[in-house]
Amino acid sequence: MAETIGIDIVRYRPEKDGEPWLQHFEVPYEPDMSVLDALLYIKDELDGTLAFRWSCRMAICGSCGCMVNGIPKLGCKTFLRDYYPQRVQLEALEHFPIERDLIAGIDDFVVKLEEIKPYIIRSDERPVAEGPFTQTPTEVDRFKQFSLCINCGLCYSACPQYGLNNEFMGPAALALLHRYNNDSRDQGRKLRQPIVNAEEGVWSCTFVGYCSTVCPQAVDPAAAINQQKVLSLVDYAVHAGGLGDSQDEPS
């Protein structure tokens, strides 16, 4: 008889359930099976009502994040062999509301991503005829790491500060803000500074650092936020000292 592995899933069906409950499944075990493979097996063979998000199966779409034994992970990048023969418990990403089964409502995160003005802002637009903006490898290196975010939301589930108060802008949004502020083509730092300086901006972060640990793309949001703290402090000192702002950016 084939080996099996126990998968416990925190189910929640809004039309039927008052609160989440645990359902146990036995899934045929293969060493190369990911958590997402197990979910697809359950959906196809055991219980077609199970709901979860997925798309690419290769850790780039950021859809299949869930709590695996209490730790936020991508289902496609997490392998059952690392748990077998122990059971695996799956739950929707923490700190977000559960919409259904493993589907978390990440609307708040998406709104925050939009709020930080995630696009290049120019005060002096130049004509297309002048050609592209060029960047040195060093200039690219200053933001590239922070541009690799796949918006999976694992860092929000890893962040106790966001869990305790979701007014906090949170790791991924602030990492994306850092990405644009550090792009030599961008001139919008002054417009983003009020978001950084706010109580719910970088100063709600207490440098727990777990966001950077769970990030499947090694974006290191904790570094982005804490580097923005330094800039926020400089911004405060400049204004408190009445030195004004020397940046040539749109106002």
């Binding site: 929640y12 809004p14 039309e15 609160e19 989440p20 923490e94 509301p97 559960i98 919409e99 259904r100 409502g105 609307d107």
Partner: peptide
């Protein structure tokens, strides 16, 4: 939202 999200 589907109308009845569960908050933990």
């Amino acid at each position: 939202s589907a109308g009845k999200p569960y908050h933990r």
